[in-house]
C-alpha cells in the first residue's frame, strides 16, 4: 500500500460526561480508497467524523490527513445524515455556502461549477427553488453537491442515505459510485447498512459496540465497476455474511 493519506493513530475520545465514545481506534487510509465504517448505534461513528473535522477535541492519540487544496476547509467535504440545508437560501445558494464563506468573489467564481454539480445530480431545474420545495432525496443530493463544491480530495459521509426510502437510497448509492469512479476521491463512509458498505467500499471497518474499537477490517475485492447486480453475486453474499458475523460476535463479547 502507498503512503496513507489519513492516519488514525490510537484515537480515544472521552466526552466530558465520562462516556468513552471511541477507544484506541487505529486505521490507515490510502489515497483514493473508499473505506466504510459500520457498527451498532452509539458506537462512536459520528464522533469519529467530528474528531476528523476538529469539531470535538481528541482525548488521546492523533488524526493526520493530507490533501492538495486551496485551504484547510477545501481539503474535506462533509455530507451529513440530515441534509442540513439553509431554508432561506435557494438550492444554488445552498450548494455555494462553502464559497460564500470565502467572500463574494469566490461565490461568483464557483457558480458555474455549482450549476454543473446540480446538473450532474439531476437537479438543474431546481437551482432557483427553495429546500422546502424539494423531496428528502433531492435535499440530500443538494447536500452532496455542496460537499463536492470545492472538489475536495477527501469526502466524509455520515449515514448520508440513512433517512431515505430504499428506492431513493439505491439510486443515490449508484450516483455516489459514479461520482467516485470519476476521480477516485478518498472516502470515509459511515453506514448502518452492511450491503451498502460492501457494494461501495474497498475496505469495511467493523466496530464494536461502545466504546468503539476496531473489531475487524474486511477487504472487499469485488471487481469494479460495480452495479446493483453485484449484490446478487455469491461473492457479495459471502462478504456480507462475514461482516454480519463479525458484528454479532462483537456484540456478544461486550454483552
Amino acid at each position: 500500500m502507498s503512503e496513507p493519506v489519513m492516519v488514525f493513530d490510537h484515537v480515544t475520545k472521552q466526552y466530558p460526561n465520562g462516556t468513552v465514545a471511541v477507544d484506541d481506534f487505529h486505521l490507515d487510509v490510502a489515497d483514493g480508497e473508499f473505506v466504510s465504517i459500520v457498527g451498532p448505534s452509539g458506537c462512536g461513528k459520528s464522533t469519529m467524523l467530528k474528531l476528523i473535522m476538529g469539531l470535538e477535541p481528541l482525548t488521546r492519540g492523533s488524526i493526520t490527513y493530507r490533501a492538495q487544496a486551496r485551504d484547510e476547509s477545501a481539503m474535506t467535504g462533509m455530507v451529513f445524515q440530515q441534509p442540513l440545508l439553509l431554508a432561506w437560501h435557494t438550492v444554488l445558494d445552498n450548494v455555494l455556502v462553502p464559497s460564500t464563506l470565502q467572500g463574494r468573489a469566490q461565490r461568483r467564481a464557483d457558480e458555474p461549477r455549482a450549476r454543473e454539480l446540480l446538473a450532474m445530480l439531476g437537479l438543474a431545474d431546481f437551482a432557483e427553488r427553495h429546500p422546502y420545495e424539494l423531496s428528502g432525496g433531492m435535499q440530500q443530493r443538494v447536500g452532496i453537491a455542496r460537499a463536492l463544491l470545492h472538489d475536495p480530495r477527501i469526502l466524509l459521509m455520515d449515514e448520508p442515505f440513512g433517512a431515505l426510502d430504499a428506492m431513493t437510497r439505491d439510486q443515490l448509492t449508484m450516483d455516489l459510485l459514479d461520482i467516485w469512479e470519476r476521480d477516485r476521491k478518498t472516502v470515509v463512509f459511515i453506514t448502518h447498512s452492511i450491503s451498502e458498505a460492501v457494494l461501495l467500499s474497498d475496505r469495511v471497518v467493523v466496530m464494536t459496540p461502545r466504546p468503539g474499537r476496531v473489531a475487524d477490517v474486511v477487504d472487499i475485492d469485488l471487481p469494479r465497476p460495480r452495479t446493483l447486480q453485484t449484490i446478487s453475486t455469491p461473492e457479495f453474499g459471502r462478504l456480507a455474511a462475514h461482516i454480519r458475523s463479525v458484528l454479532d460476535t462483537a456484540e456478544m463479547v461486550t454483552a
Binding site: K50, M53, L55, D71, E72, S73, A74, T76, M78, F80, L84, V97, P98, L101, Q102, R146
Partner: peptide
C-alpha cells in the same frame, strides 16, 4: 457543525 465544517 455543518457551517464550521465548511470553514465558517
Amino acid at each position: 457543525n455543518m457551517m464550521r465544517s465548511f470553514g465558517a
